[in-house]
Design a protein around this nucleic acid. Structure first.
Lengths: 193, 193, 193, 193
DNA sequence: GATGAATGAGGATTCATTCAT
DNA sequence: TATGAATGAATCCTCATTCAT
């Protein structure tokens, strides 16, 4: 499996650094190769093309979010608590890796539509778990049963995403994790029964 | 004033059509010129460069949103009603112009960071009016005085934006304006006292 | 018409020189542009792509052969005389332009199959006139009526071509036109009644 | 001797198959290695470089032609008969191996000049025997003593070659060996006393 | 003001060859 | 002998912008 070889991760990590530091349009394959300490051609032993590197960056990192979220969903807790943990996890992961935050919130969005659609497919995994939290909350009477799951998901994701993007655009100059409680309150108030 | 000359608007309108139909990365200056019925060089008599065309597209159209919103804010109505009208206006304008919706929600986001930052500056105008609604609502006791205005604004804008983008990505196949009430309820519940 | 503009011919002529002097595989577009005294991009205002330059080189020059041959065919002369003039014309044109001879006999044959097939299509024009000479000669009893036109054409063209290629590979060190008479005798003996 | 080891022939045979099926420009060393069932690196234990493989392909197969021709020359027969057998042999060998015919008539000609010059050196062996037939024929009065041996050789070889190439380009859809008699008549008529 | 021909910088990708194992 | 992962040089084409007319 290519993904288990050390060079695969080396290149993924190099891509995040290069994109964060140079911007999407200034991240040539040769720059990524240099940062990864491999030859240009080596990139193509592990990735089909440049786009494939970018999708892989997203997949690898999104899996981390999804895995964490999966754990959270499994826990024995209220929907409110799970939502809280989800927001906290999202903010914590990105707070601890500014490069990754820049890449996901700003740079990757400059990619073409085809790539963005693939990225959205990856996002689906994440949103499935969010849907579970919402469904569960409605069933146990904690959330308003008149809410439309799809819209609710868009509110939650849109708010988290917009909050994170604003934080990145303000160059991380305030503490993102500190906002968890307020964001949670806004969102939960909107959803609760 | 260049903006008042007919060719200025011709080019702006051509740009929206070309970008919506061909995608951001396939919208060469020569294509826009052809659609506008002018020579390539003429573009540069009205716009500094290509980026300037795109910013102007956004400015022109955003002004329409902002102007509408300004009227809404001035009305004698509750914060809830104003929020409702704002969402409704946003959805109505984009519903009536799919080209414009595609351009603002998908295509323009593929532009580089510099352009996106300028677009954000334009957005500020819009968000200022949103802030007014929120501030007013807090002052008259309609909204929870513990809410953080900035976060609230991000929730409102993030939700509207995410909802619109999802609608565009689903190729307008359901009615966006119909969602106004549900979106309003979700948001207002999150904000109310 | 692009073909009538001076830059079109400038580029064609530059291509012949560059290919003859550097070989097919060392004839980069930028080299041709430099030789032609235009920018790289200008090439693409006149030619679809690199292959199109090469096909055009062949077309332009082959037309010269075909035009001359057309005149010869029209003359009031025996098949033997027409064949003689055809060989003489072929040898004379290439003798007077060593660059062109190198390009058609050696370099252009290194191109890929697709290009060679297009070149063959161009050759058809030339061979049609050759067929006319042969048919006429059979009809007036000058040539053996048992000959297969297609094979005869292949003998004539194959011999002329092989003779020319050998001359180019020997670096033009003997006089090609001087061989006309001997080549004509060999071929005509093979064909005559 | 490397040539006697089984892998040497394996690689030669693999090269013919790969080139015939994929075309010269799509016949990467790795593809030939795979077809031969060896590792890429192994190729370089038997051949100096890629060009060396191609020359060897030609050498091996040309030797077959030359060996056959040698036998023909030795026979006690007229020049006319020997010429007939030579043409017949040439057509028969290539008719029975379409892969080889495609490779020698079309694909190998796409190689660079250096390779083609080496191929010509290999051809010399073949042409020496042809020269012998011609010299003998002149000496015994069968052929016209005014013919130029070099030109005669070019006519014979050019005609055979052009006939074969046309047959390959027409995708072997008629019988090449059937043309022997007609080709022989054309050529011999050109040469006879 | 208007034109459109000309410019030229910039980058993803392939593949023959090597060499440590 | 045999392997195959790694190397890195090399090039066609696009398109925003200019400027002579």
């Amino acid at each position: 499996m290519k993904k288990d070889k050390p060079k695969y991760r080396q290149i993924i990590d190099a891509a995040i650094i290069v994109i964060a530091e140079n911007g999407y349009h200034q991240s040539q394959v040769s720059k990524i190769a240099k940062q990864a300490g491999v030859a240009d051609g080596t990139i193509y032993l592990y990735f089909k093309n440049k786009e494939d590197i970018l999708i892989s960056v997203f997949e690898e990192k999104m899996d981390m979010f999804a895995d964490n979220l999966k754990e959270i969903v499994k826990e024995d807790a209220s929907a409110s608590e799970k939502l809280y943990k989800m927001i906290e996890n999202h903010f914590t992961v990105l707070s601890s890796n500014h490069h990754l935050a820049t890449v996901t919130q700003l740079e990757l969005r400059q990619s073409n539509l085809a790539l963005r659609q693939k990225i959205n497919a990856v996002l689906k995994n994440y949103l499935i778990f969010l849907d579970e939290i919402l469904t569960e909350g409605i069933e146990n009477g904690e959330l308003d049963n008149r809410i439309d799951i799809r819209l609710a998901r868009q509110m939650v994701f849109g708010t988290i995403d917009e909050t994170t993007t604003t934080w990145v655009m303000n160059e991380y100059k305030y503490d993102l994790v500190n906002l968890t409680e307020k964001v949670h309150r806004l969102l939960f108030n909107g959803l609760k029964a």
